[in-house]
Amino acid sequence: MIKLVGANGQISLGKQYAGRQVLVEEQEPGVWLVRTATVIPDNERWLHNEVTANGLREALEWAQSHPASDETIGSLLKRLRDEQS
């Protein structure tokens, strides 16, 4: 496919890539390799550690099978008060 680089230095890859992040590598002058990519910010990389990801997955599964309830709030508050004493 032939694309024209616009006056602003941009090319369009097509709507199917709209909003996607891409890596553009200049392999030599005038030769570029464009690849779709998923970029993980440094401060979120810990979430993708296998141990952390598994723990998070287990916690989410537990939360889905144990819906939140106010039934035991009284005993929880009493226990917290007793621990502070």
Rank of each mutant, 00 (worst) to 15 (best):
G55Y: 05
I2H: 10
A7V: 10
G14Y: 01
R81T: 09
R81C: 07
V22Q: 02
R57K: 15
S85P: 03
V24E: 11
L23V: 13
L80A: 12
R45A: 03
K78W: 02
E61T: 04
K15S: 10
R35W: 00
N49K: 00
G9Y: 05
N43V: 07
E71P: 00
V51C: 00
S69Q: 07
L13H: 06
G6W: 03
E61A: 09
T38L: 13
V5A: 05
S65F: 12
L80Q: 13
K15A: 13
A37L: 10
K15Y: 07
L80G: 04
P41N: 00
N54L: 14
I11T: 02
Y17V: 02
E28A: 15
A18T: 11
E28D: 14
G6E: 03
L47D: 03
H48C: 07
E50H: 07
L76Q: 08
G9N: 03
V51H: 00
I2Y: 06
Q21F: 01
D82C: 02
L23Y: 09
G6A: 12
E83L: 14
I11Y: 06
N8D: 15
P29F: 06
Q64M: 15
P41G: 01
V39S: 04
L76V: 12
T36L: 12
L60E: 14
N43L: 03
R45V: 01
R81A: 08
V24F: 06
L13C: 05
Q84A: 15
G74T: 11
L77T: 02
R35M: 09
R20F: 06
V22F: 00
S12A: 08
L76G: 04
D70Q: 12
E50A: 05
G55E: 03
T52M: 07
G19H: 04
L47G: 01
E44S: 01
R20W: 03
G14H: 04
L47C: 08
N54K: 15
M1A: 13
K15V: 04
L77E: 07
W46D: 01
V34M: 03
N8G: 10
Q10A: 13
I2S: 12
T38Y: 14
V34Y: 01
Q27H: 06
E28S: 15
G19N: 09
T72M: 09
E61N: 06
V22Y: 07
I11L: 06
I73V: 14
S85Q: 14
Q10N: 10
R35V: 10
